[in-house]
Amino acid sequence: MLDLLPQFVFNGLLIGMSYALVAIGMTMIFGIMNIANFAHGEFYMLGGCITYFIAAKLNAPYLVAVPVSVAVVTGLGFLLERVVFRQLRLKSAMSSVLATIGLGLILQNGALIFFGPQPQAIPTSFSAFPLQLGPIFTTEARLFAVAVTAATLVLMYVFLNHTLYGTAMRATFQQTEAAALVAIPIDRMRGITFALGAGLAALGGALLGAIFFVQPAMGATESLKAFIVVILGGLGSIPGSIVGGIFLGVAESLGTVVSSAYKDAIGFVLVIIIMLYRPDGLFKKS
C-alpha cells in the first residue's frame, strides 16, 4: 500500500494544480470585484470544450487548440465583465452574484446545445503509453499538464509580485480607493482580472480535458471545488489558492485509498473543519 503513495500524491498534484488554476481566478475576481463568481467553473468547461472542438472538429493540432481556446475564453471573460458586471457595479453585490448564477446556466446550456451532452476525449498527439518515473506511472499528457500548469503559476507569481502592473493589480485588491487615487485605472483592472481569471480556468479545462473527458456539465463541479479551495486558502489570497488547490487535490487523491465514493465529500469535510478552527482560511494573513 505504502509503495503506491507517490502515485496517489502525483495524481493529486495534477488535479490540485488544475483546481488552483480555477481558484486563482475566482479569488482574484472576489478580491477586486467582491463577487463570488458561481459561473467560474464554466470557463474551465468552455476551455475544455472549445479545445475539443478545435482539435476534433477543425482538426487542428492540440498544441494549437489549447492557446486558441484559452484566448477565446479570455476574450469572452473580458466581454462579460464589460457587458454584464460593469453595469451591475453600482447595484447591490447580490445582483452581481445572481448574475453569475444566471450566466453559469447560460454558458452550460449554450455549451450543451453546441457540443452535445456526451463526454468527449480531446485528440492529442501524445503517446497513450504509460511512462514510468521511479515509483510513478504517468503519461505524456499528464506530464505536459503538470509542466504547463506549474509554468503558468510561476508566471502569475512573477507578474503579480515583480511587475508594476501586477503590483497595481494587488493594490487594487487590497484597497481599491487608494488605487484609484494614484491613477490606477480601476475599471480596466477589473476587466483584465476577470479576463485573466477566465483564461486561467480555461487553461485548466484544456489541459485536463486531454487526460479525462470534456462535457458541458463538468463546469458546475469545478465551480464548487474552486469555491472550497478559495475558502481553504482564504478569500482573496492568491498564494492561498495555489496551496489550497494542491492540498485539496492531494487530499482527495489520498482519500480514494480509503473510499473513492467519498472522494468529493473530502473537500467539504475539510472546509467544515477549517471553518471551525481557522475561519479566515489556512493561509490568510490577518
Partner: peptide, 22 residues
C-alpha cells in the same frame, strides 16, 4: 485619504512606485 488607506501587503518601496502609476 482618511485613515491612510495604505495597502497592507505591499512594500513601502512599491507604494511609492505605484504613487507614480500615472
Amino acid at each position: 485619504p482618511e485613515e491612510r488607506k495604505i495597502w497592507p501587503h505591499i512594500t513601502v518601496q512599491e507604494h511609492l512606485r505605484l504613487g507614480a502609476f500615472g
